[in-house]
Simulated assay, not measured.
Amino acid sequence: MSTPIIQIRDVTKTYDAGRPVLSGLNLEVAAGEALAVLGPSGSGKSTLLNLIAGLDRPSAGSVTVDGLRVDQLTEAGLARYRQARIGMVFQFFNLLDDLTALDNVLLPAQLAGLPAVKARRRALELLAQLGVDEHAGAFPGRLSGGQRQRVAVARALMNRPPLLLADEPTGALDRAAAADVRELLTELHAAGQTLLLVTHDTALARACASRTIELLDGGIVRDVVRPVMSA
């Protein structure tokens, strides 16, 4: 059996000596899975995502992603990890307003030192695959919410990360744009991309996820593997 792409072992996270946000959490995610993390506000969803992304460190326990002990990496190591191993999609897109869609997508490749011609070809291919290539020269402020999220997904996929993390990717979108993003993430998973989605959007989880966990009071109270339904 192959090694899981995510291994969370006995992870506890406490802030300012308060009640643990996560308490003794154990979780494994296999390559190719699409995992949706559900739960009420304060249940630890965002904290879990931040630990996997290396944006925070556990108070106890270990976080291993794609064979790397993320909790033991230096700041420089974490930067390299985020460049090469994960892509991140956020609720509010996090695109740079003074860069075009194409230049936003190119950023991860530039930070990783990829050759300019190769990077530009990859970026244009991604924008075309995601249906926004005609907006390559547009600035984010001229795009709809759904178009901006597609550009954000293209940026997240630029360096071919084995793991794509999405934090409420439909939270800032209207119903039509949210359905569009659900379809996009479903297609990515069908193509073999490993996904971890933190969301309140049950329609997103139902459409995209092959597995759903629910967090409550810092622990997993439900873990369900099921077939993916059409969006």
Rank of each mutant, 00 (worst) to 15 (best):
G145I: 06
R182P: 09
V151R: 07
N159W: 14
P161C: 09
P162V: 03
A190R: 15
V181G: 10
A154S: 13
G146F: 09
H189T: 05
L185V: 00
P140A: 05
N159C: 11
A178V: 05
R150V: 00
Q193R: 15
D180G: 13
M158D: 05
A176R: 14
P169C: 13
Q193S: 11
L185G: 05
A172F: 04
R150S: 09
R155G: 10
Q149A: 01
L184I: 04
L184P: 03
A166Q: 04
Q147F: 10
A156Q: 12
A177E: 13
D174T: 06
G146Q: 03
R150K: 09
A178R: 03
A172P: 04
S144R: 02
P140C: 09
E168F: 08
Q147D: 07
A191D: 13
H189A: 15
M158K: 02
E183H: 12
A190L: 14
T186Y: 12
L143Y: 11
A176E: 14
V153I: 15
L173F: 06
G141P: 11
M158T: 09
A156P: 03
V153R: 07
L164F: 12
Q149P: 03
L143I: 05
A178K: 07
G145D: 00
Q193W: 00
G145K: 02
G192D: 14
A177V: 04
L173S: 01
T186M: 12
G192H: 12
D167F: 08
V181A: 01
